[in-house]
Design a protein around this nucleic acid. Structure first.
Length: 325
DNA sequence: CAAACCGA
DNA sequence: TCGGTTTGG
């Protein structure tokens, strides 16, 4: 999946929250929620993140606990939702299918041994999960007045486009695809404690002595979300080879190697589907309505989200005060 | 010796 | 994501 090789290619430096004060950041919603939930949230307490009728509410808790970090640092998040998954992403699609099938097996096993409650819970997970989670996520973000964008395809590509066109100041992502998609700057580790990292496209190209096409070619040789890398080629060799042979085609010919769909993947990185957007950055959360939505409507335990809502409310007061000074 | 691979 | 192992220039 994620490509750690790209980290070795990218020019990354630590920054402080003061450096990026007031920035508008386009964050891939799916990616952010997934990372946030898997790293921060303790999945052992399963009942906390699942309501009585088996509906998962981890996304709602994740949003309430994760968003304050943006607000408290005077960052305005723009959450970008994936559109159609590119059919080139064969691996990921296969991966999802495998997970779906595994979940279905567990459901069948539960039903087999007469565990109706467990079966219903897994049923809810497998079928309604994606759509409902995306809907409740959007509902909650609307109440919190957090700007959202619907990407025509890859969320990461849309984030990169928004950063490149100046619709936002930076892309925000925990992985490195935004670099290939052309984001001039990408912020990482905004949610974790400690300083964020800033990944810089121009500095990267400068250091490597490549243009963006060259960077994409080198990355493809190492392997991306859309293709397997060439065996024996890592980040260093890839950059050297692209410089030496000019482009991807030269390197492939030299090694008598082949990457399926190489041309389409290359074009996708170079010019991915994305739309021009205009972001309203005046954010005025309706904390009470959001709390009612999460706690009353979806049955999330109040103490799971209380602190998060408090922090959101406090950061709003702070922002209000800032405006007067 | 550095780079890439691979298993945990 | 990391550290030990293998490869190869």
């Amino acid at each position: 999946m994620g490509n750690a090789d790209l980290r070795d290619l990218a020019a990354i430096r630590d920054v402080t929250f003061a450096d990026i004060d007031g920035s508008v950041v386009a964050v891939d919603a799916h990616n952010w929620l997934y990372r946030y939930l898997t790293t921060t949230v303790k999945w052992t307490a399963d009942e906390v993140y699942t309501t009585d009728d088996g509906m998962e509410v981890a996304n709602l808790i994740g949003i309430v606990q994760g968003l304050p970090k943006f607000f408290e640092h005077d960052l305005i998040p723009v959450l970008v939702f994936d559109g159609d998954v590119t059919d080139l992403k064969a691996d990921e699609v296969a991966d999802r299918r495998a997970k779906r099938e595994a979940a279905e097996e567990r459901r069948a096993a539960a039903a087999e041994r007469g565990d109706a409650v467990e079966a219903a819970r897994l049923e809810a997970r497998t079928q309604r999960l994606t759509e409902t989670i995306h809907e409740t996520t959007r509902d909650l973000l609307r109440l919190l007045d957090v700007p959202t964008v619907e990407a025509p395809a890859e969320g990461e590509a849309q984030c990169a486009h928004m950063a490149a066109t100046g619709a936002v100041d930076h892309a925000g992502s925990e992985d490195y695809d935004t670099l290939l998609f052309g984001a001039p700057t990408t912020l990482r580790q905004l949610t974790s404690k400690g300083n964020p990292e800033l990944m810089d496209l121009v500095a990267t190209l400068d250091e490597l002595g490549l243009d963006r096409q060259g960077l994409i070619d080198a990355a493809m040789l190492c392997g991306t979300d859309f293709n397997e890398g060439i065996h024996g080629i890592g980040p260093k060799t890839a950059v050297t080879a692209v410089r030496e042979h000019g482009d991807l085609w030269g390197v492939l010919a030299d090694r008598d190697a082949d990457i399926p769909n190489a041309e389409a993947i290359r074009d996708l990185f170079m010019d991915p589907p994305a739309i021009d957007v205009d972001i309203d950055t005046s954010v005025n959360p309706d904390v009470e309505a959001a709390r009612a939505y999460v706690v009353d409507e979806w049955g999330v335990a109040a103490d799971e989200v209380e602190r998060g809502f408090e922090r959101i409310a406090e950061s709003q007061v702070q922002t209000g005060l800032d405006r007067w000074t």
